[in-house]
Design a binder for these strands. Structure first.
Ligand code: ZN
Ligand code: ZN
Ligand code: ZN
Ligand code: ZN
Lengths: 160, 160
DNA sequence: ATGACTCATGTTATAACATAACACAAGGCC
DNA sequence: GGCCTTGTGTTATGTTATAACATGAGTCAT
């Protein structure tokens, strides 16, 4: 039994969370430690497949009895970004857990549903090649790719 | 004599500005008027091929004797965005004049140089198709595309 | 075990980016 | 004139993110 392609609707989300946390533990064995507060932020990010704002995380922490200040959350998020455990969605000023299984350097294109607010991470090498080729045609060397497509997901199209 | 492919280095930038302004005049003939303040903001955006922040525009207006408040600038920018005369670069919270000659619905992929800060607008239909196809493979219908590739432009690579 | 060092955290304040809400003015139109 | 739409001015506030400095917890060599 496999994971669904889209993380909307019915799926074993506890599995998403536990595997994400396990991957984080595995990755943070060296000097970069997954501390309490970093783990807490990562858990909150993984509470859904919807991008979550830094101040949403702050609110969440206040509610569950661990109030924090902005720098605490931004530090944790920056750490998680560096480790490749979360992504930042530039078009929303929000963060989402990295759903890629590849160790690093994945492409991270996002499909963002304007109805249900879900964000699906793609890791499409063809797309990445096409982007890099387009840049190369203009002589650009690409370091960082922001690809965020907004629209309506399959589930929401059916619902409408 | 044609326009250079990259708007870096030596080129007739006065031409860029005048054609952009002329295109804006042409587009804003109906109920949507290119008023004084909108035109001023558009001129400031077009002062370079570098993305410019809303508060940079405010500073610029203060310096040249037409001080303004944030809503004034954001209103003008939103108007210009609606008319397709400028684009917003989500990854930088900044704005840039639209360099596309096509009337509307262009793809607007951006190559952003981290060294010289220039942003080059592409309008690559192949890329757009690849993006839409990737989305369609996941059942997504795409309304809006944010494609911003950061790296080093050809000129800056040569300089290094 | 002490001092020096590094890494993480706490805390205060502020910077940077963006909009809500309301008042008013100019122009078209009946 | 009275009405409507569009644009502008102004005040205040909301939202997102970081600077700067102090404190604490662990490691390690002397
Ligand atoms: Zn899940
Ligand atoms: Zn949806
Ligand atoms: Zn130019
Ligand atoms: Zn450059």
């Amino acid at each position: 039994m496999d994971h669904a392609i889209t993380p909307t609707g019915q799926h074993d989300h506890a599995h998403c969370v536990s595997s994400a946390l396990a991957a984080a533990e595995a990755r943070c064995t060296g000097t970069a430690k997954l501390t309490q507060s970093r783990r807490r932020v990562l858990e909150i990010v993984w509470e859904s497949h919807r991008p979550v704002g830094a101040y949403d995380i702050l609110d969440r922490m206040a509610k569950d009895g661990n109030p924090a200040k902005p720098p605490t959350v931004y530090r944790a998020l920056n750490f998680l970004l560096e480790q490749g455990l979360v992504h930042r969605l530039e078009s929303m000023n929000a963060f989402i857990g990295c759903g890629s299984t590849s160790v690093d350097g994945h492409a991270a294109q996002f499909l963002i549903c304007r109805d249900c607010n879900m964000a699906l991470e793609l890791d499409d090498p063809t797309l990445r090649k096409a982007l890099d080729q387009a840049a190369r045609n203009s002589g650009f060397r690409v370091d960082r790719r922001v690809v965020e497509l907004s629209g309506v997901c399959a589930d929401c199209q059916k619902a409408a």
